[in-house]
Amino acid sequence: MESLLDISKAEKKNKLYDSITPNRFKRTIIKDWQLYVLCAPVIIYFLIFEFGPMYGVQLAFKDFIIGKGIWGSPWVGFKHFERFFTSYQFNIILRNTLVLSIYSLAAGFPFPVILAIMLNNIRGERFKKIVQTTTYAPHFISVVVFCGMINIFLSPSTGIVNFFIKQLRLEPIFFMGKASMFSHIFVWSDIWQNTGWAAIVYIAALSGINPELYEAAKIDGANKLKSIWHVDLPGIMPTIITLLIMRIGKILSLGFQKAYLLQTPLNIDASEIIATYTYKVGLLDAQYSYSTAIGLFNTVVNILLLIMANQLSKKFNDVSLW
């Protein structure tokens, strides 16, 4: 048996080695041609709609002139980047993006972990099911409907939140009209909508922990809190770190839709973020090159952040995305 395995291993090695030579390469492609055909639609889609726009990134270094097209427009170097970095909006939108993103991460990240651990430590299976089913549901509400709900609930004249505030004989608060309120509304509504969904991954990770570990902890005299600390948390730590890296890598790619939909002229000082600004400058004001430059800046910072976060996690935890 073992020798058989060895032979097949040796064969594999040979194949691998052979596949590098051009002749063999051609032959494997011919052998797999039907599989390549199956891949073709997605590859074509990616070439056109995902890689196609990359060609237009050069606009960030050009002055776009419609008549001349992307290729023919003149190069201008870093002009648009300089303009962006020195514009007075730069500080504002960078600050807003960072505030919303880091606030979301800091306030929102622990909740799914806590929810998953709580669900893992109760015995009532039916209750568990009910809580899970219910907390996932808000994730499927569309962002438009969700922002509409926020508007309705927080309306100063007809909203239910202000109804309670008025009941307490306090002045109604115009939530959507206050820049100082924006980040709280943005972050906490997000926690309401996505905690349950985000917990699924942790619930899955927790269910993969060896039950003997809990037994051993019990025999060693650990109560539930201690077994959470010594068994549950270490068990899901790799999952936590992986998700954290991915979140950090996306810190500047804060979603366009929700910020845009919750924007009002009154809270714009806190709600204008990179994504909404790119949209307005680019599509509403048709400053194509300038907007492309801002987008490119955003992408590059994201990649750097992701690499940094991954490096840190490799160093301290031996967990890496790649």
Binding site: F49, F51, G52, P53, M54, I70, L283, L296, T299
Partner: peptide
Amino acid sequence: PMYFSGGMIPQYLL
């Protein structure tokens, strides 16, 4: 494309 994308305007022009 998960890490590097053209962005809103290049896609619009395409």
